[in-house]
């Protein structure tokens, strides 16, 4: 499989990244060389092999439904690039 500049543009949009035309060419080349490298995986017969979600199977990390303290709002908003009246502020979003 190889990717085109158009693919790179699509993926960039999904990832919320933007590139100059020159960068697009560079990223297309680099992605292609990495993809060519990982193509080796198709050699391996994996029919009937379960995917390993995690290094080893672990079960049931659960917490009880008990309230623990939240952060102070001041702490919450301290790192916010833009805020107002206790809210995080962004340009108008269209639903």
């Amino acid at each position: 499989m190889s990717v085109s500049i158009k693919d790179v543009e699509y993926v960039a949009k999904l990832a919320r990244l933007e590139f100059s035309e020159k960068e697009k060419v560079k990223f297309t080349e680099e992605l292609n060389s990495i993809l060519k490298y990982v193509e080796k995986l198709s050699e391996v017969d994996t029919s009937g092999v379960e995917p390993a979600i995690g290094a080893y199977p672990m079960y049931n990390a659960l917490r009880e439904d008990e309230i623990s303290p939240s952060l102070d709002r001041e702490e919450i908003l301290k790192n916010a690039p833009d805020k107002q009246d206790g809210y995080f502020k962004v340009p108008k979003v269209i639903d």
């Binding site: 995986l41 994996t46 995917p51």
Partner: peptide
């Protein structure tokens, strides 16, 4: 595929 090879 990568998760399956991870199993192997």
């Amino acid at each position: 595929k990568a998760l399956q090879i991870r199993t192997l």
